[in-house]
Design a protein around this nucleic acid. Structure first.
Lengths: 159, 159
DNA sequence: TAAAAGATTCATTCTATTTGAATCTTTGAA
DNA sequence: TTCAAAGATTCAAATAGAATGAATCTTTTA
């Protein structure tokens, strides 16, 4: 009962983009390095976000990705529904549940799933961008210790 | 984003027990055969249900399992919380999410998870026992076709 | 036209779920 | 008091899906 890493990474990408000033966008390679995530893997997440119109991707020199709408128009429910491969709380088909014809469990679980999604619908990317995340970080994230010295302002490390 | 088969099977066991007249109980072997589930596997589900006080298990000749409280006192939320190994909607630790200190996502997801569980809390085993499931079936379930001939009343097949 | 950057495809690794087999322990009846 | 029934426990194997990585293709623009 847990979201996939795909969904997790999608949020991280969106948060990263939301942190860029002036909707400048960023590059996949850069995000992968900052978050210490496999570039190839992150790429697939970005594809899906682009295909579903959360971000614009542009190839070639000077290319990159950027959000294509304001943060408060990127709904957390939509992101989850886009990224999660399976959103049915139970699978009555494989292996076939032999009482399925008369069983109300799936219906109840579906209702609960809707409650989950409805709750997430109340949040947007803007809600995820806490003050500390509203400006780009100056150092690779894995060198930052938010708790002790969040104002660390060393110039950005090597690319 | 799906419950495990353990949880699924736990509900099936409880439903099966709820179908027995007079709280007579049943045997694991019998349930496994009726539902066409591995006996050894079902055993583990039963263990957990017994350990957490949903059912009583008795060994030896004439033994078996039976519910130890009325169906309307077996809450669906409790069953899920007992059976699901992991109920956190996201894992910020592995691999470590480098923005976790400032990130609100986990908090939002937790709130949504609570909405899910709160919804399930409204249902009990009694709600799962639809009229058609309130009496024991006369044939092994895998021979029953609920949709077309639910009143099939061949005597129970070989054990 | 060459380099940058995203797109695509394929193969591999990893992990957790699911399943199965064998054996042990308890219980009650003959 | 012995045997068979039934749950309990332990260990191992199979499976599926998630996660990752590498290589190559395509588009874009300086």
């Amino acid at each position: 009962m847990q979201l996939s890493k795909h969904t997790d990474y999608a949020f991280r990408v969106l948060i990263y983009l939301g942190m860029q000033p002036e909707q400048n966008g960023a590059q996949i390679k850069e995000i992968a390095e900052r978050y210490d995530i496999s570039r190839a893997h992150l790429m697939k997440v970005v594809q899906k976000l682009a295909q579903h119109g959360f971000i614009d991707a542009k190839r070639g020199q000077g290319g990159g990705i950027k959000p294509n709408r304001p943060a408060h128009h990127i709904n957390c429910r939509e992101v989850i529904e886009t990224m999660e491969a399976v959103l049915t709380p139970i699978n009555c088909q494989t292996p076939p549940c032999l009482i399925r014809g008369e069983c109300r469990l799936a219906g109840y679980l579906h209702a609960a799933q809707q409650a989950f999604l409805t709750q997430m619908q109340h949040y947007t990317l803007a809600d995820l961008l806490t003050p500390a995340l509203q400006t780009p970080l100056q150092t690779p994230l894995h060198e930052v210790r938010f708790d002790s010295n969040a104002n660390n302002s060393r110039p950005a490390g090597g690319k």
